[in-house]
Nucleic acid binder design. Structure first.
Lengths: 137, 137
DNA sequence: GTTCCTGCAAAAGCTTTGCAGAAGA
DNA sequence: TCTTCTGCAAAGCTTTTGCAGGAAC
């Protein structure tokens, strides 16, 4: 995706496409590893020496409000960010701590959403042992 | 539920039933409002003047490890505790901030759990507007 | 007497806020 | 010029840790 397309995406959601915001958003799109704010900061401060954590947090909030990313709270310690806004579940391995995506059966959201409530966001979290940690257990 | 039954429940899970732990667990069972650690502390420190936040956290961790409660992380700000360990979803209203339980279709957990992973815990979170806040919107 | 539990005080660590300067239109 | 954005510094808050005293058996 070109910078121009990214910039248009941000603009269409009412977010001015500054250099920092483009850097953050493009990092999230390129790294589907559910990074934390600090991970994003550490990765970007090399190329953008003036990048700050504040800007990362500001940008995340803006992107979240615009519906361009999900905040994964499966880990109580810190927030993970995910630019994949399509329906999918998140699995956290209690041993290695890694986060995995997994597919949800079709229509899960529709079937599970409580009636009478207006559901805007829907998250499915699972915790346990990932295949690799099961083997080395 | 009598104190004796509660004490036996804790003992059967390997937790010595101290006064403080009984107080915390019995509060959780009586108040299905997904309280935070501070809410529990504030409620109990009247009757148990020496109760401390540390003890609340210690007890929560012990109960969680014993499988007697769930930790709800739908709110990134703080953890909510839920003594209902049966499968159910949690809904958070973005306007009033309240947490609601909702039923999940039968077998949701089995259908959604990713294959190859050993799933120990399974959480479904939804966010949006509760019926009351929809009306006053 | 030994072990486990409690809880004060302090630390840890993520996230937010205040605010002054910079950037952009 | 006016508004918005950035980012340093500091604060805020929940949760954890260290540790000494106490309870239980």
């Amino acid at each position: 995706m070109t910078t121009q397309v990214l910039a248009d995406t941000l603009r269409s959601r009412g977010i001015s496409p500054t250099q920092q915001r483009l850097a953050v958003y493009s990092y999230l799109l390129a790294h589907r590893t559910h990074p934390t704010a600090d991970t994003v900061y550490q990765a970007l401060c090399r190329d953008y020496p003036t990048m700050s954590r504040t800007t990362v947090y500001n940008t995340m909030r803006a992107l979240f409000r615009a519906g361009l990313l999900r905040i994964v709270t499966i880990d109580a310690e810190e927030q993970h960010f995910d630019a994949d806004t399509a329906d999918h579940g998140h699995f956290r391995c209690t041993q290695c701590g890694e986060l995995f995506d997994f597919d949800l059966p079709a229509d899960t959201m529709r079937q599970c959403a409580p009636s009478g409530f207006q559901t805007d966001l829907f998250d499915v979290y699972a915790t346990g042992l990932c295949p690799h940690c099961q083997a080395t257990h």
